[in-house]
Structures are given as C-alpha cells and as structure tokens.
Design a protein around this nucleic acid. Structure first.
Lengths: 228, 228
DNA sequence: TGACTTCGTGTAAAAAAGACACAAACATAG
DNA sequence: CTATGTTTGTGTCTTTTTTACACGAAGTCA
C-alpha cells in the first residue's frame, strides 16, 4: 500500500524528552536504537505520527510503546525541522517534554528486555540525530518553567519532604537555596499541605507534605503568581 | 508530477501571527483568503513548507509572499496538528509569531491589491481554520515574554520616547503602570540610550531613546534578568 | 550513651516596589 | 503675544520583599 500526493511532504515524528528526579539529580530517559540510522546509539523516545491521532496522542503512544510510561505530565516543546536533521530524508519532529517520578514509573528497560535507561542529565551519551539540541531546548524550558509554575511536583512522589523539594529546585536551577527562606516562601503559598506523617530514614524524621493542585489553581485564577 | 510514500503523511504548513503596535493598541496582521476552504475569510498568513527549506525560512518566505514583510523578528510558537483542523485533510501547522513596526513595514495590502490588513488585537473578525486558537496562544506567549525579555523594542521605531514604551507595555500587559516607577526601572537597566533628539508634536517634546541590544546582551550573559 | 546527621525555626538588615505632585516645555487658539 | 491646555520629567517616603544567618531538637548507629 502506498500513498501519493501532488506535492512532496516531509515525514512527521514526535520525540519526547522525559525528565526524572532521583533525589539528588535530574535524569533523562533514553532508548537505545535498534535500527539504522544510528543503530546502537541512544536517542529520545519517539516515532512517526499516525494520520488519525493528534500530536500529543502520538507522543503518548510512542512513549508507552518504547518505554512503558503512561499517564505522565506532557507538554509540547518545539518543532525541529531542519532539512538534513535525519539522513533518511526530510523528517520534521514535534518535540515534547515529560515529567515523571522514576519510582512510580520504572522505565521498562529497567525491568524487561527493551532498552530504555535513565541517565543523569549532566552525563549523557552522544545522541542520535539532533536529539542533543532537542534536549538542550527542553532543559532550558524546564529551567524557565520551574520558576513560575509548580511543575516540580510532577517529579516528586505524592508525599515529599521540603528538603526533597528544595534539592529538586537546586538541581534544576543549579544553584544553592537558603533552607529557611525556601521553606518560608513555599509555605507562604497555600498549596503545600503538611501531612501528619513523617519520613523514615537515618536521622531526624522530616514532615511529609503534598501538593494541593486545587488550591494552586484557585490561587492561579485570582491572578496569583508563583515565582521562585 | 506526484510523490509516493509507503506510509501516509500529513501536509505541513507554517502560519504567522504578526503583531504590530500603532501607538496605542496591539494590532494583528491578517490576510483575506482567496481560495477555498474559507475563501473570503480572514486568516493568518502562511502556507506549505517546501522540502529544502527549514521551518523559519518557510515562515519568512510565506510572510513576504503574502504580506510583503521581511526581516522581521520571528520566533517559533507552537505546532497545531489536530486531525480535522483543516477540512482538506490532515494538515499540521507550525505557528510562528512575528513582531513588526507597522510604519517601517507597511502591509502590502495597504498599498497594492493583495488583501492584507491590520486589525486591532481586541477586535478581530472570525478567522479561518483554528487560527483563533493559534492567535490566542500567540497573545499569551507575547504577554508572558514581554515581562522578562526586551521584545517590546521590536514593535517600536528605532527611536522612541519612554511614554511610547510605557504605552506599549500597558497595552500588552493590559494594566496601567506608574510613570515614574516605570522610567526609574527601565533606565536603571543600562540598555536604553538617551539620544540628543526630541520628539516633535503638539506639546512638550519628549526625549528620544534607543534600545542598545549589545548592552542588553552583555548584561544577559552576566545572568541579569529583565523582569518588569 | 555519645557521636553524628538532618530537621525545623525567627529576626534583623538591605533591597526593591509602590504611591504620590508639580514645575517646565511646547502648540495652539484667541 | 498672552493665556490655555497638554505632555514631559523628576525625588522621596513608605511598604513589601528578599536576603543573610545559627542553634536546639529528633532521630540513627556504633
């Protein structure tokens, strides 16, 4: 079966930059390519868009097929379409970025045969195609976004300590934050709910909190700005 | 001549949301469609991406072909690809937004036969396709961007008064700003150069300024944040 | 039981933001 | 040429926000 058009058309793909957080550093999920071009290289999960699905659906489908992840936070990033970015011909790719809690969504590569693996965002292997620039754009977007939108919570477990939250922010913004000021500010917003439960571990237990999206959205509707 | 592929491919277009500023309000450049679908409707300038040009080049080419504008500030916005957004079939469109000084770049529709016209951003006619949502996304992006990047200057003449700049910010942010505080803040950054020339007009002349992009970029490299 | 590590808390100083009023410059009408 | 009307340009004080900073309490582990 073939498809014929009056004018030439680029192929259309989606690619996903999946970020995770392991408690100390930012991580990125990559898959190892099995086929040419770039067979054996690491690459962003992604693939061709089908004719009846919209772009986000395509991204979710590819993400699940290639990594087993589903139900994650996903947002369109940017579209990469330079001629020559794919040696097979003109391929335009709509990039997405996803935020995931690695523990709640173990990458399939960790459990079965498929080759998906988490890498530290700072120590990535060489990537196929122009995926390094896609990743750079995603990192920049994440850094920009984290400051004025509560996206960090997508990377943490439902219940977390303020120290974890701070570590996450420090990892993404790549600078140290003052503990007391950080807590003061975050708690001054009304959307962190302290729970009656404490983290275990080797030292003094820390109070667990959760993010109350309803409260956040109520505030946001009133023109409230997050801003860290 | 036809083109045949093993799998079906969406058509790929670019669309441009062109913003201008007339001294008091934000404006948008639209063209009137001559052909079906939506013949006679107003639409964003745009068209099909050619195989050997990258996305931004395609946007610039279409912009010049349809409106005569060239050399403008142009940035990728977002990609719209829902099935059904175009009655002709699956068409995925990469949207761009452009910032223009309407006086320096009179729309061709104003001067010759082609039908391009500036509309006030608040009073737009019904638009073809899903162009209304594209426009909404562009407006939102512009409002977000203006606060922390000096994009406003793309909308003003090279030499402008601080009152013009303030009016522009007020139009985009849609709230009044205090004159003294606005001037204090903008001048505290080092990238507005006062000129030795004054605006004419019916009242006390106002000092002209220009935006010094070099100084801005030097500051930006030092981790300086704009933030209005 | 002592050593070690992490948690949780307040205050004071500095910086930034916000409110606010009036004289000077020019054009125009009378 | 004078009076009127409109826009420009400027400084201070108050309030709010940001930043810097240290130590006792709670737990684990040897």
């Amino acid at each position: 079966m073939t498809y014929t058009y009056e004018y030439p058309r680029p192929a259309l793909t989606v690619d996903c930059v999946v970020f995770g957080f392991d408690g100390s550093g930012l991580q990125v999920l990559l898959i190892r390519r099995g086929v040419e071009p770039f067979a054996g290289s690491w690459a962003l999960p992604g693939g061709f868009v089908q004719m009846e699905e919209n772009l986000e659906t395509a991204a979710r489908r590819e993400l699940e097929e290639e990594t087993g992840l589903k139900g994650v936070f996903l947002e369109q990033l940017c579209t990469f379409g330079d001629p020559g970015r794919d040696p097979r011909g003109r391929v335009v790719s709509v990039a997405f970025f996803a935020l995931v809690q690695p523990d709640q969504h173990p990458a399939r590569g960790d459990t079965d045969a498929s080759d998906a693996k988490w890498f530290e965002a700072g120590k990535l292997p060489p990537l196929a195609f122009d995926h390094a620039s896609i990743l750079g754009a995603a990192l920049e977007r994440l850094r920009g976004k984290i400051r004025y939108q509560p996206v960090g919570f997508e990377l943490l477990p439902k219940r977390f300590t303020l120290a974890q939250l701070q570590t996450l922010y420090e990892a993404i913004l790549d600078r140290p934050l003052d503990k007391r000021n950080f807590r003061k500010k975050l708690l001054s917003f009304d959307f962190l709910v302290p729970l009656d439960d404490y983290s275990g571990g080797a030292h003094r237990p820390a109070r667990l909190h959760r993010f109350d999206r309803r409260k956040y959205e109520a505030l946001a509707r009133k023109g409230f700005l997050f801003e860290l």
